[in-house]
Design a protein around this nucleic acid. Structure first.
Length: 500
DNA sequence: AAAAAAC
């Protein structure tokens, strides 16, 4: 078995890798690092979770030890499809480049331009970019691309999906033809192959076994539900509460507006929850992700921005609130759990109108997914009103529970009818969650003190949109300090760990 | 029936 020390990496890099606790390279690393160090072009076919990022970060660090950056002339350039992925690559440079004195510049949208410009002025060894912001800097004449020695195109197939290829071509034209190019893609459809042929010269092709279907360590279940959103939400809450070993979970919705809505609902029901989608401001996106990774937030409601590539180790559960329209996205979504051989669980809520999509999923993964407690044909009648309580499925619920539930349904009804899909409002709630996070525990969770403690954006005009027309935070008037009174019902693991 | 990305 190969060892990192056998790949030709520098001492500085090797010592940082050892400090990070890695001894053995993954197949993509073992295959790509030696030729990359010899300045060969690389065509890497690998999914995230295979150690792909380090397979270009480590050789780049070694190669960058020779030479120095000049003002406005970056030496290397990495293109990523989403801001979060770009930030994640930057973190890798910090981790493995801790023994180097390299200037790393992260050029992504949604954050201040000036700070990025100052970094470019100082001379960047590594630029990590989303295409739009990079082109923006180029068009302002702030960047000279003629000094770029290494170009990395990551997640090429996803760039294609997202319509970034014209931008990538424009950027590539600005970079000298003598450069070294490292090109990565999870799949190799004909368009991507054509692109690779144009961008790469005599590349070393490194392919690691594609995770064609879902990891066997992930338990997958379909859960039948009626299509009404409040019924799906009730179903989801029941599911979450019934999990014995839920450490943390990502809950996927198909639409941004549903992310916002579901987030609000779970928050009102007292869950430790965050949200992530592309219309949220960048600071909230970053904070949410960091808090979820750190375990400060147990549930993350997300759009497919979080489906691919994000390195969140050890997610115990994935819930699909909506069945993904494209079956491939299902594989990516549930791939967020059961990583590195760990076990994971995934639940997908399926309604009658989703059947063609759930069928497509089973076809793609080549297996039938078991139903949790009866398929759609066994689904009980929908509840007629909230006051009746939900009819138990297969008599699972006793009467006492139903009584308890009718009160809860009233609360749910209230929460749901006070409905709003405003992104600004979601962000307002995000602010609150983030603001109270460190001190938050079972006791102060709903306290006014925590609620009104909001640092940061209060002065900016944008934040005014986050308040309602009466100039106060919407949440402050719609329910009391203990809005839903679940008390002991919330499992301990769902609460923010104030005690730990 | 969607999401993502520049201002």
């Amino acid at each position: 078995m190969t060892n990192f020390a056998d790949l030709g990496l520098s001492q500085k890099v090797l010592s940082a890798v050892a400090d990070a606790g890695y001894a053995t390279p993954t197949p993509i690393q073992a295959g790509a690092i030696p030729p990359a160090l010899q300045r060969r072009d690389i065509l890497g076919i690998a999914q995230t979770g295979t150690g792909k990022t380090a397979s270009f970060v480590l050789p780049m660090l070694t190669l960058l030890e020779k030479g120095r950056a000049r003002a406005r002339m970056p030496r290397t350039l990495i293109l990523e499809p989403t801001r979060e992925l770009a930030a994640q690559v930057a973190e890798n440079f910090d981790k493995y480049g801790k023994n180097h004195k390299l200037n790393i510049a992260l050029l992504i949208g949604g954050v201040s331009f000036d700070e990025q410009d100052r970094k470019l002025e100082r001379g960047a060894d590594v630029l990590i970019c989303t295409p739009g912001r990079l082109l923006d800097h180029c068009e302002r004449g702030k960047l000279l691309m003629s000094g770029v020695e290494i170009l990395v195109i990551d997640e090429a197939d996803r760039m294609l999906d997202m319509g970034f290829i014209p931008d990538i071509e424009r950027i590539a034209k600005l970079i000298p033809f003598t450069r070294q190019t490292l090109f990565f893609s999870a799949t190799m459809p004909p368009e991507i192959q054509k692109l690779a042929d144009r961008f790469l010269q005599n590349p070393e092709r490194v392919e690691v076994a594609r995770r064609s279907s879902t990891a066997i360590t992930v338990t997958q279940r379909f859960v039948a539900s009626h299509a009404k959103d409040y019924e799906k939400r009730a179903m989801l809450r029941d599911l979450i509460r019934s999990q014995d070993e839920l450490k943390n979970a990502i809950i996927f919705c198909n639409r941004k507006k549903d992310v916002a809505e579901l987030f609000r609902s779970l928050d009102r029901h007292g869950f430790s929850v965050g949200a992530l989608h592309g219309d949220m401001d960048q600071r909230s996106r970053m904070t949410m992700l960091a808090n979820f990774k750190d375990g400060n937030i147990k549930l993350l409601v997300a759009s497919d921005v979080a489906a691919r590539g994000l390195d969140i180790p050890d997610v115990s559960h994935v819930f699909n609130f909506d069945v993904p329209i494209h079956a491939e996205d299902y594989v990516h979504r549930i791939g967020r759990t059961g990583r590195a051989g760990r076990s994971g669980a995934s639940f997908t809520i399926v309604t009658k109108r989703d059947v063609k999509f759930s069928d497509a999923i089973e076809k793609l993964i080549g297996q039938k997914v078991e139903w949790l407690s009866g398929d759609l044909s066994e689904l009980p009648e929908p509840m007629e009103s909230h006051e009746n309580g939900r009819r138990g499925r297969d008599g699972r619920r006793d009467r006492k529970k139903d009584v308890e539930r009718s009160g809860r349904d009233r609360a749910e009804h209230k929460a749901d009818t006070a409905h709003s899909d405003s992104v600004a409002e979601l962000e307002s709630v995000v602010e609150r969650v983030v603001a109270v996070k460190p001190e938050r525990n079972a006791e102060n969770k709903h306290s006014q003190a925590g609620r009104n403690n909001r640092p940061g954006r209060a002065q900016t005009p944008a934040n005014d949109d986050n308040r309602d027309r009466r100039g106060r935070n919407r949440r402050d008037h719609d329910d009391g300090p203990t809005p839903l009174g679940f008390g002991d019902e919330i499992p301990a693991f769902m609460l923010i760990a104030g005690k730990a």
